[in-house]
Amino acid sequence: MLKKIIFSFALLFSLKGWAQDDLLRTLEKENPPTTDHTIASFKGTRLINLHTIETLGKGSLDFRISHRFGDFSTGTNNLWGLDGPATLRLGFDYSVTDRFTVGIGRSSYGKLIDGFLKYRILRQTNNEDVPISITGLATMNITTLIDPNKNITGVDQYQFFSSRISYLYQLMIARKFNQKLTLQIAPTLIHYNLVQNLNDKNDMFSLAGSGRFKITRSLSITGEYALRVTRYTVQQSTLYHNVASVGIDIETGGHVFQVFVTNATAINEVQAIPYTTTSWQKGEIRLGFNISRVFGIHAHKKGNKDKKW
């Protein structure tokens, strides 16, 4: 009898104890986490030459400086390319929403002005409901070069403004496999209104692969390769080469600093992917860096001060 009573009491108390500890568990159960998007698949919105699936949070203004030095193959007298000739792109990206970014920029190579629209179509979630992220990119590029042969031939290749324009459409598909590894593949279509060589095609298709591997919390190894899939020019494999790059991402407070080695002279994809004439095999590679400084100009700070809630 006594045993039974003790047993009953034990049960009773265990129940009560359970109820007390359970307030937290009840709360957690009643408020299941909302969709938990995978963050930081890549450190930045660009990896080396190419875009990543990442966009910045709403209201971020990203000032970007991209720089490529000259060829290593130019040797000691040229300090392995550090003396130049260098190419530069300056650009601003602005995130209209968490998913939608617009940007403008200008590259010294080809005196190219570019503008782009980038939209995150799908975001990977941590619960594996959505296993991948997809981002779409559309760019329009206008060269402001003056035709160098205009006076000699008497014909201006840029007689029509439309001849200066090229486009790029890219669908980036990426998966962050774990805290360290992210891989991305991006089918890419490039269209030139006016092609460079007589028998070139206006459209070319390429498949770009990118990856990053995190070594420490602030340091990652990155790599990119753009495979040209369709035949768009006669000298496809002799004059032009696929773009390959390897580098590191270093991250501090509000900056991402990317240092890398690449065979592309141009920074803009419409120039780099189809028309890179320098190759790794000949040592025609160069050092390059991208600096990104992000300003938060969407101030919800005011709201914080005005009201407590």
């Binding site: 307030l23 910045l56 949070g57 300003f295």
Partner: peptide
């Protein structure tokens, strides 16, 4: 008994980059 739960990702910063 007092209990509270907060999802860390609901913290918002002025700088979205910092938030990440």
């Amino acid at each position: 008994n007092v209990a509270a739960v907060i999802a860390i990702k609901t913290f918002h910063f002025n700088n979205a980059f910092m938030e990440e």
